[in-house]
Design a binder for these strands. Structure first.
Length: 446
RNA sequence: GCUUCCUUAGCCAAGUUGGUAAGGCAAUUGACUGCAACUCAAUGACCAGUGGUUCGAAUCCGCUAGGAAGCUCCA
């Protein structure tokens, strides 16, 4: 198996990846809170981790990938009240929107997409255990995690508890023993609620991931991913709960992707520059959106600007034009069904990704392959085996990157159309050849 | 205030464990071409500044200047 390494936020170091079980990867990525349409930033972790997963599978790992859906939350409850409908109306609607985006962006279905509402019993049990072992305390129907009980608290985010008190936005909550303590269960009198040993209420946000990981994976997992903004407090709090419950880190490797800016500014409602994923896909197309989101170091901020889009569009244009020619070549020469699998030519691409999931460098390798293909296609003496190998390799790369290019069988009829075009051109009948050329462009063969 | 990080050609931007700088856009020139489109080739960097460690540093350490992100709504 190929050696891969990537940055572990838990240790702040690039580390060699060693899975718990040889040849298998267990991976959990925090999913959306379904209270409105996903925006373009929500899609970054989705496509990034999907690309990573496809890469892992390509090099031979069996990947068990779980991504949750948070369908219990104040924002959902408020929206339900606002629209005067049950919470499920809101969550069903936005889960639908979310899944639509994933499909459009060519994201492979995951092993499981657990919802909080399906795990309520387990969540209550989990919290109850924390109370019983003294890691959490009950105050008037609320349950809080007692951060003071976890000596390692701050390990992931490198936050020193003492430093957090000055300067940071620390909410006042007189019920808490310590301002860092976080709610595991909230007493509530409005919106959806569940019965619990502490009265009616709903769970806090941080417990669900711990419970889902326990339920689905049964043990510590390899990789836990999500956006950088989740590092603190969400993931820190997940670790704290796992430390108290199982005396482990919940995951051996923590991967966090950086955020996105819109034209150099942070995306926010108050700036009015939020771009919805579905709008971006409609305006720019799935391939361009996906490529723009992954063609950058995942730990750097992406500036979603006209310039960035144009740069990626130009890459896509090169890819498209070359890919069509390769596809045509393979069809013309009856090589379509004889494409080699896992050609060695993909190695530079795989090497780029094995080094801290550097998709940008992978794209550079793809461009090298395109350049080489263009050169081969132009040569008078056709090098069949190498061209077909390039075609196959480029197809594999597109698959890993999640771009929509794939080998397409061209009908006999269209092949003869192409041959007619060539003969018309040879005969210098440019009127006919131009007409045929336009037709071939129209049906996406040229 | 605390934590983490960044500063590479006009622009975007890559640079694992230190050995004399990927790629893309734009620009200029050339090749190919019935016309287009596409494509190929050639042409650019004293790596923010400044000290130090080293045979040798964009890459390690210090300082200066500028910038970013996070610090319980947020992917």
């Amino acid at each position: 198996m190929k050696e891969i390494k990537f940055y572990n936020t838990l240790t702040n170091k690039v580390e060699l990846f060693k899975p718990i079980k040889e040849g298998e990867v267990s991976m959990y990525v925090c999913g959306p809170t379904v209270y409105n349409d996903p925006h373009i930033g929500n899609m970054r972790p989705v496509v990034f981790f999907d690309t990573f997963r496809k890469y892992l599978e390509y090099i031979g790992y069996k990947v068990k990938y779980v991504s949750n859906i948070t369908d219990v939350d104040d924002k959902i409850i408020n929206k339900a009240i606002e629209e005067n409908v049950p919470e499920t109306t809101i969550t069903d609607r936005y889960i639908g929107e979310y899944k639509k985006c994933l499909e459009l962006l060519n994201v492979a279905p995951q092993y499981s997409n657990p919802r909080v509402t399906d795990y309520m019993d387990s969540i209550i049990k989990y919290i109850n255990n924390l109370v019983n072992i003294g890691a959490a305390y009950v105050v008037d129907g609320d349950v809080f995690f007692d951060v003071a009980k976890d000596e390692k608290y701050g390990e992931l985010s490198k936050i020193e508890i003492d430093n957090l008190k000055s300067g940071a936005r620390v909410e006042e909550n007189s019920k808490k023993k310590n301002s860092l303590d976080f709610a595991l269960w909230k007493k509530t009198d409005k919106g959806i609620k569940w019965e619990s040993p502490w009265g009616e209420g709903r769970p806090g946000w941080h417990t669900e991931c711990c419970v889902m990981i326990d339920s689905i994976f049964k043990d510590i997992i390899d990789i836990h991913g999500g956006g950088m903004d989740l590092r603190f407090p969400h993931h820190e709090n997940e670790i704290a709960q796992a430390e108290m419950t199982h005396h482990n880190h919940l995951a051996n490797y923590w991967i966090h992707n950086a955020m996105m800016n819109i034209k150099g500014e942070k995306m926010s409602k108050s700036l009015g520059n939020v771009i919805l994923a579905k709008d971006a896909i409609k305006d720019y197309g799935s391939d361009l959106v996906r490529l723009t989101l992954i063609n950058a170091p995942y730990r750097s901020i992406i500036n979603f600007s006209d310039k960035t889009l144009a740069d990626n569009q130009s890459i896509l244009q090169k890819l498209s034009s070359c890919y069509k020619q390769l596809n045509l070549f393979a069809n013309l020469h009856g090589l379509f069904d004889k494409l080699p699998k896992h050609s060695i030519k993909i190695e530079p691409f795989l090497d780029a990704l094995s080094n801290d999931i550097n998709i940008s460098n992978g794209v550079t390798e793809m461009l090298e392959l395109i350049k080489n293909s263009n050169m081969l296609l132009r040569q008078k003496v056709e090098n069949f085996s190498e061209i077909v190998e390039n075609f196959s390799t480029l197809s594999d790369i597109c698959h890993i990157l999640g771009l929509s290019f794939r080998p397409t069988k061209i009908s006999e009829q269209n092949i003869s159309l192409y041959k007619d075009y060539l003969s018309a051109k040879d005969a210098k009948d440019y009127e006919l050849s131009d007409r045929l050329r336009n037709k071939l462009i129209e049906i996406n063969i040229l």
